[in-house]
Design a protein around this nucleic acid. Structure first.
Lengths: 253, 253
DNA sequence: AAGTGGTCTAGACCACTTA
DNA sequence: AAGTGGTCTAGACCACTTC
């Protein structure tokens, strides 16, 4: 009984550290500023480096910090608003499209994708790669799976692959009448190739946006877009790019 | 020159482990099955426990595994589709609402919220807490911030707080004409209170859905909903709850 | 070459669940 | 009490960037 009810739930050190650091970021650091290195910070707080890193990982996940190997840890700017699925009822590659078409190649899609498209297993589809850049940095990488019978008339195109073919495929796609599209967002981790394109390490957290484009009662195309979770806030619905960020204003120390 | 181009980019152990385990999950485990404990698994793969845990963390982030302290690690079912922002142009608490109203209390909102609502700092607003359950488990916790002047006529209500008041506030809100709503999704980590409600540990990854309800040209209400990122796939737009999951079918060994 | 973050180890102890 | 995942330590080495 003599024990007053302090610390009923002892908070993990890394969680407490996260809070302390978060407040320090709000009050004593400005965007872009470099933090002391991990070894110094760990020593300053009297914890092992691994524990400090756990706290930094949390803050990076929340988009507060940016860490670059060989460089250092900097205070991240507020996440940028990236609009997704606002252009309802529009095919990819249309007039107001935020994406840059890279290339195209025939490929056998993963089983889950083949299941959604009605194609049989081991049947190759057109795979168009696109990337999305915002405010000068890459924010998303996309794979567009398009079954052969969604774009039946590719006769005029010689190239079996490459940017030219990609554009041709998208142009053909426009000719179908789009009934509707279905969107979903979930958390994932960047595969090696996506990571490279997004300038991140493999396993970095990403928001995966899956879009089914439906025409003639069937899935005419399937888009799987991987967005950097650390730098992006996805906006959808009627929205534009409204700024809602957490925490008070950052000011210089 | 004698060196053949093997291992140009030496893959981290934990990443390789993740791949191996992921394939094992596809081929040798069925949903709900319990994996060997971490110490055994680490020994089996000849790595330190910390390294194995890094791989497990990845798989948990991807929604493939579920870990519970004191219990063990099990194979997670495919993520459930949870529809978000489909009921466009509808106030919270309307007829086809998936949320359960918990309670309501006056509170001074965080600075970022106060900024979005036009209220001054230190001015309390109604804060309605709601929770969302799907397939028998909690999937989201919500805080609804409603400025006093969005619900001017609360005269008939005695209770200063509690469920009754929460319902009254939502009922009053219906009387405004909703112009539109703006949605955004971003990655976050669960605060202590959200974590408790979602049956997770603090810091667990969550998808934060922010919705601005706009009426009379102003933000009449602001919803901040935290969804479990491990178990949920958010669907929006025209979508229903279509099932697209990664990897082949899971079957029993 | 120096300095940074990223990976990895081998151990210890703690919090929680179950029996 | 036994077994699980969660936290934490003190150290080592590696990959990368910058000077």
């Amino acid at each position: 009984m003599g024990t007053t009810q302090l610390e009923t739930v002892p908070e993990p050190k890394y969680w407490h550290l996260r809070t302390v650091l978060s407040e320090a970021l709000d009050s004593e650091f400005s965007v872009g500023e470099i933090l002391p290195n991990e070894r110094d910070l760990a020593a300053r707080f009297g914890v092992a480096r691994a524990t400090l890193r756990q706290a930094l990982e949390q803050l990076e996940l929340e988009g507060r910090l940016q860490r670059r190997r060989g460089v250092g840890t900097t205070v991240a700017p507020p996440r940028m608003g990236v609009s997704v699925g606002t252009t309802q009822h529009a095919w990819p590659g249309g007039p107001h499209d935020a994406w840059q078409t890279l290339d195209c190649a025939p490929e056998v899609p993963p089983a889950a994708v083949a299941e959604t498209l009605v194609t049989g297993r081991d049947e190759p589809v057109h795979v168009v790669r696109r990337s999305r850049v915002s405010h000068g940095q890459p924010v998303a990488a996309e794979l567009l799976y398009i079954p052969a019978d969604s774009v039946p008339d590719l006769s005029g195109i010689d190239a079996p692959a490459g940017t030219a073919r990609a554009r041709a495929v998208l142009r053909e796609l426009q000719r179908l009448e789009l009934e509707r599209q279905e969107n979903a967002v979930e958390l994932g981790s960047a595969r090696a190739d996506d990571a490279r394109e997004l300038d991140r390490l493999p396993g970095a957290p990403v928001l995966v946006v899956t879009t089914r484009f439906i025409a003639r009662g069937r899935t005419a195309a399937l888009s799987v877009a991987t967005y950097r979770a650390d730098t992006c806030r996805l906006t959808f619905g009627d929205s534009g790019g409204v700024e809602i960020h957490h925490g008070p204003e950052r000011r210089a120390s």
